[in-house]
């Protein structure tokens, strides 16, 4: 299988949801390929990973440091302290699309206002610090003014780090791909 037949999971940075990232094209359907491709995501710096995914997956320490700096430059008000709750995860069978409830996931939520702009933090697990940090960044990203350069730089840097980590693990997974040979070929 060549790189022509691959796709990436993309989260659009602005739409803040998993969508087909810019540069994604319909893949060729050779019967062995996936359905989307993103040939130049790394070359263009567009990693296809949005802020929420990055903020949920990045190392906590640099995120804390970023938010500590933001706190010094802005007025942060905690409107709802971080608290754990449940998120029900529905799934569906892959053929007939029968929806059912798979189970619940532990989730942390937090609400803040940064200079009056509302921010909402949500992440899986019992992660009060991360949820708070996500809420602060969310307020600055989705306010009525451009996001601070520092935040943009952080997201770019950490987005790349998360993508690299995912790719590194995927490289190892790919080493276990089976190369079938017919017995006569041996």
């Amino acid at each position: 299988m060549t790189a022509d037949g691959i796709c990436v999971r993309g989260i659009h940075p602005r739409a803040n949801r998993l969508v087909r990232a810019p540069g994604l094209e319909k893949g060729t359907d050779s019967g062995m390929t996936a359905n989307l491709v993103n040939r130049n995501s790394h070359e263009t710096g567009e990693l296809g990973l949005g802020p929420d995914y990055t903020l949920c997956e990045c190392e906590l320490e640099p995120l804390k440091q970023l938010v500590a700096r933001l706190e010094r430059a802005s007025q942060v008000e905690v409107r709802k302290s971080p608290s754990v709750c449940l998120t029900m995860i529905p799934a569906e069978d892959s053929l007939e699309k029968q929806k059912f409830f798979l189970g619940e996931a532990l989730t942390t939520e937090c609400e803040v206002a940064v200079d009056g702009l509302p921010g909402f933090g949500l992440c899986l697990g019992d992660e009060p610090v991360r949820a708070y940090c996500i809420a602060v960044v969310d307020a600055l990203l989705h306010g009525d003014r451009p996001a601070p350069i520092e935040v943009e730089a952080f997201l770019r840097e950490q987005g790349e780090a998360v993508a690299r980590r995912d790719q590194d693990e995927f490289d190892l997974v790919l080493q276990t791909q089976v190369d079938f040979k017919l017995m006569e070929e041996e």
Binding site: C85, L86, M88, F170
Partner: peptide
């Protein structure tokens, strides 16, 4: 329970493992 997630889309899976006993050659390989 404060949230209901969107329906999980397993086609988006970051695959660690995928095998098939029905076909040798499957899309993307075993």
């Amino acid at each position: 329970r404060r949230y209901d997630a969107e329906i999980l889309n397993t086609r988006e899976m970051f695959v660690h493992r995928r095998i098939s006993s029905t076909f040798r050659d499957i899309p993307g390989g075993q």
